[in-house]
């Protein structure tokens, strides 16, 4: 791990997030409708964006693993799923806290919230599956299959829930947002991206080390039978 990733990136993360949140909390004007509560946007929206990015990385890693097996893509898939679940859960918590003063409820069955809840449950299942399979190769293949199916499911869930509710969530596009809100949002988003990279790098290294330890396990265990030991070492090599 080079020095920039180890020290520079965390420092950059702290600087960007600190600056973005300071801008958002102190510098940006309060929203016309939502007042001060709108400042939740500078933590909620970057969290959601980064959760989506992590889930996308997870999907790409899963597809890549099925095409060409490698512990690196498997470790990447594991890292992105866990970090994505963290960011997505936080995004959902901040979203429902935001919903309380603006909509009057913590939860509404609108398509976006519902789809995200389903997505988070799917990724929890994915991580549970990874825990419950001991064989590292089978675990990698199966979790890749589950990740791909889960990702395919997302648009279907979105459409079906939208039909089910038949109401449309109003999205704010950058044009309707005050430029004094765009800057803090951008800075916070880049800070959150840096944080995502920091978390992913460390989680990836943990996963890779675990994989290597698992694959090397038969060799490391002391065996009495010399023939068994020979066969194990030949299999690993």
């Amino acid at each position: 791990m080079n020095k920039f990733v180890k020290f520079g990136l965390p420092a950059l993360t702290l600087a960007l997030l600190g600056a973005g949140w300071w801008l958002g909390l102190a510098w940006a004007p309060p929203d016309r409708e939502m007042g001060e509560v709108q400042r939740i946007m500078y933590v909620h929206v970057p969290l959601q964006w980064m959760a989506m990015m992590a889930m996308f990385i997870n999907f790409v890693a899963a597809v890549t693993y099925l095409m060409r097996q490698s512990w690196k893509t498997d470790a990447m898939a594991e890292a992105s799923a866990e970090v994505g679940l963290l960011f997505g859960t936080l995004g959902m918590i901040t979203g429902s806290i935001w919903g309380r003063p603006t909509w009057g409820v913590y939860w509404s069955w609108d398509p976006r919230l519902t789809s995200e809840a389903i997505l988070l449950v799917s990724y929890t299942g994915y991580l549970v599956l990874r825990r419950f399979v001991e064989d590292p190769e089978k675990r990698a293949v199966w979790s890749a299959v589950v990740a791909i199916i889960g990702a395919i499911n997302l648009p279907i869930v979105w459409f079906s829930v939208r039909w089910w509710r038949s109401l449309h969530q109003v999205q704010s596009s950058p044009k309707t947002v005050d430029p004094q809100m765009v800057l803090p949002l951008r800075v916070s988003a880049f800070g959150m991206l840096a944080l995502l990279i920091v978390f992913m790098v460390h989680r990836y290294r943990i996963a890779l080390a675990e994989r290597k330890a698992e694959v090397a396990l038969p060799e490391a265990l002391p065996t009495d039978d010399p023939a068994l030991r020979a066969s194990h070492s030949s299999k690993v090599a």
Binding site: I118, L119, V121, S122, T124, G125, Y126, V128, L129, F132, V133, E134, K138, W142, V145, V146, I149, G150, N153, I156, V157, F159, S160, V161
Partner: peptide
């Protein structure tokens, strides 16, 4: 097929399947 070979398959299958079949 996946969960039948995993530990705790009785928990795993609904956990994987329910979010998927919601649509």
């Amino acid at each position: 097929a996946i969960s039948s070979n995993a530990r705790a398959r009785d928990v795993l299958l609904p956990l994987l399947l329910f979010p998927l079949v919601i649509p």
